[in-house]
Amino acid sequence: MTLDALVARAARRLLEAGSPSARLDAEVLLCHVLGVDRTWLYTWGDRQVPVFERARFEALLAARAAGQPVAYLTGEREFWGLRLSTSPHTLIPRPDTERLVEAALAHGASPRGRLLDLGTGTGAIALAFASERPGWSVVGTDRSPEAVALARHNAERLAIGNVDFRAGDWFTALDHEESGERFALIVSNPPYIAADDPHLRQGDLRFEPASALVAAEQGLADLRQLVVEARAHLVPGGWLLLEHGHGQGKAVRDALADAGYGEVATLRDLGGNDRVSLGRHVEGGTGGGRS
């Protein structure tokens, strides 16, 4: 069977299984097995597929048809032009989160500074920012030791040296001696899905760690906690930037305003949905937040 025929048949199978990106999934999995890129696949589509590689492809295809995420099957996902290793211990980096990176770069335009990425997972946000701002010192924290190990692996693999990954729940991984560590930018893509959200039973979300997806208070608990606690770790004039669900913009803006942040705003993603809310640490702000 030729490459073209194998991909076409695989795409039909995945489409019947409910994949929203059946053709792309089939191509990515076959490229992974063959160790080639998609351009090669298009160029040499009339070639025959060796028996061993076809068997490996069929096994991955069956797993994908059962719902397993492509990023877990291949062990990698591209984000901000960086090829990141992935694992079931972390969320799969998604294009929508690049909006958070764009916002961080816009508010971190100076040649030097410090950025903190809370709940770093694969390290996607921290590594994307660090790759664009080599003069900055970037810290990423995650309560999962497996996630921290993976983020460190990605940093080494990409030869990005201005980032430090630490294990700890939110701010607990930081140095709290004397005045503690402070940052010009604090960013996070925290859990923000409500426990009863039907999307948790659909697509890739079924296989991703629930601890990185679900938050109490209809998905707002962690967002509100970060709003309150971040003030103690921002330099005067520093910015807090939070990714959230498309229906949570107003609630996050209210939390930021109640906590005394200034210049509160919400940014939209390419789909026109509320995606990132932000505020600036104002000295003498009221502090406190909504419960």
Results as ranks from 00 to 15, higher is better:
Gly67Arg: 11
Arg99Glu: 02
Ala106Gly: 01
Ala62Tyr: 00
Phe52Thr: 11
Thr74Pro: 13
Arg83Pro: 07
Ala59Trp: 03
Ala63His: 09
Ala109Val: 03
Leu100Ala: 03
Glu76Ile: 00
Thr74His: 12
Gly81Ser: 06
Phe52Ile: 14
Leu61Thr: 07
Leu84Phe: 04
Ala55His: 15
Leu116Thr: 02
Thr97Asn: 04
Glu102Gly: 09
Gly108Thr: 03
Arg77Glu: 14
Glu53Ile: 04
Ala71Pro: 11
Ser110Tyr: 00
Val51Pro: 08
Phe79Ile: 05
Phe57Lys: 10
Ala55Asp: 15
Gly119Thr: 04
Val101Cys: 02
Ser110Thr: 09
Gly108Ala: 05
Val101Gln: 01
Val51Trp: 03
Ala106His: 03
Glu98Pro: 13
Ala104Thr: 03
Gly123Lys: 14
His107Val: 05
Val101His: 00
Arg99Asp: 06
Arg83Gly: 06
Pro50Arg: 10
Leu118Thr: 11
Phe52Cys: 07
Thr120His: 01
Arg77Phe: 10
Ala106Ile: 01
Ala62Asp: 12
Arg83Glu: 12
Gly123Phe: 12
Glu76Ser: 14
Ala109Pro: 10
Gln48Asp: 14
Ala104Pro: 01
Gly119Ala: 00
Ala59Ser: 14
Gln68Pro: 02
Leu61Glu: 07
Arg54Phe: 07
Arg77Val: 13
Glu102Arg: 07
Ile92Asn: 06
Phe52Glu: 15
Arg99Phe: 02
Phe57Tyr: 15
Gly108Ser: 02
Asp117Lys: 15
Tyr72Phe: 14
Glu98Met: 13
